[in-house]
Design a protein around this nucleic acid. Structure first.
Lengths: 162, 162
DNA sequence: CAGTATCCTCGCAGATACTG
DNA sequence: CAGTATCTGCGAGGATACTG
């Protein structure tokens, strides 16, 4: 399919090339809820062995999971999120907040992520501007501004033409 | 397929039921880059009319886009992000930041979103804890803590058993 | 338990042609 | 320009059986 991969410089396109598949995203959500074993992913997600195996292998390939022998000498493995994988917390947090706001209309369950050093839970997580002020999500406007690149400006103006 | 929709209370599962399709996510990315017209989505993404039409209609149904007659009396329409759609900025920002960090290793192009009232660009966006401190993304740990629900604790302990 | 090996089917996505 | 209608294929995903 090669979705919009005309643009190899777009971080989102590249990221979605790795993650942008329905099952992969659900597997990662499951991982953030604490699941680590093959059989548990299989049962919770009701996904076929075949597909699960492929997706997990792919994510290990991409460095999102590590496969760890959990001490049962081949009879039991664990898929653990790497730093790269855990860093997707932000993506899933954003997704969860969106769903809470627009699908449910309330705040809901957090995920199980903690700071290893302090031991304190990384919650609640909020998405803010760099200066700490919240984003006025209901009053946003799309147009090019000071931060826009030449490529963006070009595309923008092309969109305005007939 | 009904991916993991065993859990209708999970905001992420529900959100992905709406968005969790490769093309849909790419269409939204494109919208955040300023694209609004059918032909432009078609050309930039190199997607077939058929699929594009279905996805756009679905997103209009879900209230993510509004379809606006752009004054050419049926000869020209625009798909504009609603508030619900614009609020996905956080999801794509998180995705872009992840890609920048783990795929490219640098900070890159922002999107074209502005505050309508102040007129200033909503950038840079960062994901923080509620108290404003940054998240130590490389040193996270997965385990249940004070914020965990009963359902999460149950699932967690089940994962630890043989 | 954690997969691989086959087989099979359904529907997603592309191509093309047509319409208001 | 912005779609709908139709046809077609191919591959993702499920089911089942088997293995270390």
């Amino acid at each position: 399919m090669h979705r919009g991969y005309d643009d190899p410089h777009c971080a989102i396109a590249r990221s979605l090339e790795i993650l942008g598949d329905g099952w992969t995203l659900m597997i990662l959500r499951e991982a953030f809820l604490g699941t680590r074993r093959f059989a548990d992913f299989e049962r919770h997600l009701r996904i076929s062995k075949n597909v699960l195996s492929k997706r997990l292998a792919h994510l290990v390939d991409e460095g999102v999971f590590t496969k760890v022998d959990a001490g049962q000498f081949g009879a039991r493995y664990e898929y653990r999120l790497t730093s790269k994988g855990k860093d997707l917390l932000t993506v899933f947090t954003a997704l969860r907040q969106w769903g809470d706001r627009w699908v449910f209309g309330e705040e809901r369950e957090p995920m199980l992520v903690h700071d290893r050093q302090t031991g304190s839970p990384i919650l609640p997580v909020r998405i803010r501007r760099a200066d700490g002020t919240p984003i006025p999500s209901r009053d946003l406007e799309l147009r090019p501004g000071p931060g826009a690149s030449d490529a963006q400006l070009e595309r923008w103006h092309a969109s305005q033409d007939d």
